[in-house]
């Protein structure tokens, strides 16, 4: 099992494509950081016009913590693609390359192979999120400095004191790993159905985008299904920047994500064990 996992990770990290994700994650971060350097003030004035009418806020508003928070807003849109790039390729890519044939003529159980592929996608996700934490949080702090963090929500304005922020980011990144693992497991399930990796990667993105729109639409009909969509819960990390932190809701979201992940893996194993390898 460990052996198999080592081989999977070796294959992932030996492949140039894997590092594209890291470059993209860094690029998204740099673009937002650059935008904040040049246009941060204008952006803040626009966003805070409601507040500024009545209150005067002084100090380093556009600090590293604030910028990181802006960067993380892209998490729902961009990082799933980067995760799908690897997880969606895990089974379909091997089928497409023809290596799945060879792999499965080796004495390995298919369930174990699926599980190891999931584990390696998970490890990749963790490393990607750690990388994101480094380029977004660490770099933003280096560029913009530390300070009390402003969290602008649609109807609330929150200030978090600077020595109360870091743990929230740690928790948020941990939650992001969980959310992205759900994406990874879904991409892997789609990957099991396909014999080329473009299909599962695009389908994963399609599902995420459509469900995210449903999660955000203010239509009463959808309100009934919203609590059951994983996209509704993927943004649970934002809860850590609320005051007070809605631990109950975050816990429920985490549970939903864990259930989805487990379900996706179980389906993948069930299907893949019965799949005829004709690629």
């Amino acid at each position: 099992m460990i052996q198999l996992l080592r081989i999977e990770l070796y294959k992932i990290f030996k492949r140039p494509r894997t590092y594209i994700s890291f470059v993209i994650a860094a690029a998204i971060t740099f673009v937002i950081q650059l935008a904040m350097i040049t246009d941060g003030k204008t952006f803040m004035n626009f966003a805070m016009q409601g507040i500024n009418e009545q209150f005067e806020i002084q100090g380093n508003i556009i600090n590293g913590y604030f910028v990181t928070h802006i960067i993380l807003q892209s998490l729902l849109v961009h990082i799933p693609l980067l995760v799908a790039l690897v997880a969606g390729d895990s089974l379909a890519g091997e089928a497409n390359q023809g290596t799945l044939r060879l792999l499965l003529t080796k004495p390995i159980s298919r369930s174990k192979l699926v599980f190891v592929k999931f584990l390696s996608s998970f490890i990749y996700t963790v490393i990607l999120i750690i990388w994101l934490a480094i380029v977004s949080l660490l770099l933003s702090i280096l560029i913009f400095g530390k300070g009390d963090m402003i969290n602008l929500k649609s109807e609330t304005f929150i200030i978090i004191l600077k020595n109360d922020v870091l743990w929230r980011y740690m928790a948020a990144f941990a939650f992001a790993v969980l959310a992205m693992t759900t994406i990874a497991s879904m991409a892997m399930l789609l990957s099991a159905f396909a014999d080329n990796s473009i299909g599962p990667i695009i389908s994963t993105m399609g599902i995420v985008v459509v469900l995210a729109i449903l999660s955000n639409l203010e239509i009463p009909l959808f309100n009934y299904i919203k609590p059951y969509l994983f996209t509704t819960h993927m943004i649970g990390w934002k809860g850590f920047f609320d005051d007070p932190v809605p631990l109950g809701a975050i816990g429920r979201s985490a549970m939903v994500l864990v259930c989805y992940t487990t379900g996706f893996i179980a389906c993948t194993i069930f299907y893949f064990n019965r799949k005829d390898i004709t690629s």
């Binding site: 070796y10 030996k14 390359q97």
Partner: peptide
């Protein structure tokens, strides 16, 4: 076994491919 085309991991060397599949052979 070789089934149909002998497909390997193109981005890895012959040695790496051999090592990987050897390790999986039990």
């Amino acid at each position: 076994a070789i089934i149909e085309r002998p497909d390997m991991y193109g981005y890895l060397s012959g040695w790496e491919n051999l090592k990987i599949f050897a390790a999986l052979s039990g």
